[in-house]
């Protein structure tokens, strides 16, 4: 694409405001598309990223310039992550039995997700940075970004992988678990939340209240377990 064909320039003074309006507008557009298409592949975040990426190209704005405005939205990730405690507490209160099997399944899922994510990238010749960005991909995106940053991955790559991973879970969980005859709502909810966080959970939440509760706990718990596990496992994995 020849950028000089489109001499769009944003005057420096309004760059932060432009970035904010662009981000909100692109996301709202993505939400509208999702409403119309009703397909998990039409994810508003992915749509917004593509629109903003193209716009930055056309207006010759650097990512750093864009971020001067977008950082106000980015900042809210912190309190939003803290707020994840609320649905988790709400769901935990409704759990009566099966706490230990749930913890076993959660820990195994976190461990396997981290190790296989890192391991498969390395086995296929990917760089350590890519492998470290893959490791937190099962986590809910705000935690995936934070963990990726703390272990030396590329946060934006982890964010995109977490979203696409969630979409994969949403479209594959029914056929996969049907084939294995796993029908219990608890197992389905827990697996959806652990492997696919919010987007994965959105597939099972309308199916059953038990699935919804277990998915809610899984999203928060997987974030916590992996955040604790990653600093211990990553130095060991890195030697390989």
């Amino acid at each position: 694409m020849n950028g000089s064909l489109l001499p769009l320039t944003i005057s420096p003074g309004v760059v932060p405001l432009f970035a904010l309006v662009l981000t909100l507008g692109a996301y709202l557009f993505g939400v509208e598309v999702q409403k119309r298409v009703r397909n998990p592949l039409a994810n508003p975040v992915l749509i917004a990223i593509v629109i903003i990426g193209i716009t930055l190209r056309l207006t010759h704005l650097s990512y750093q310039d864009y971020f001067t405005g977008a950082q106000f939205i980015h900042f809210m990730l912190g309190p939003a992550t803290v707020a994840l405690a609320i649905p988790m507490v709400r769901a935990l209160e409704h759990m009566r039995r099966g706490f230990w099997p749930m913890m076993a399944a959660l820990c195994a899922g976190s461990f396997v997700g981290l190790i296989t994510g890192y391991g498969i990238v390395r086995l296929l010749g990917g760089s350590q940075t890519v492998a470290l960005s893959m490791a937190p991909k099962s986590l809910t995106t705000p935690i995936a970004i934070a963990v990726s940053q703390s272990i030396g991955g590329i946060p934006s790559l982890s964010a995109v992988l977490a979203i696409i991973g969630g979409i994969l879970v949403a479209v594959s969980i029914d056929p996969l678990l049907h084939r294995l005859k796993i029908r219990e709502p608890a197992a389905r909810g827990l697996a959806a939340g652990t492997a696919g966080s919010g987007i994965g959970a959105s597939r099972v939440i309308p199916q059953h209240t038990i699935s919804a509760a277990f998915a809610g706990v899984a999203i928060g718990a997987n974030g916590i377990i992996t955040a604790l596990l990653a600093p211990i496992l990553v130095p060991i994995l890195k030697r390989w």
Binding site: A80, P142, A159, V160
Partner: peptide
């Protein structure tokens, strides 16, 4: 929540 990780996600263009 989705909106909040758009700014970080756009970093992928780099």
């Amino acid at each position: 929540l989705g909106l909040l990780f758009v700014p970080a996600g756009v970093g992928i263009i780099a």
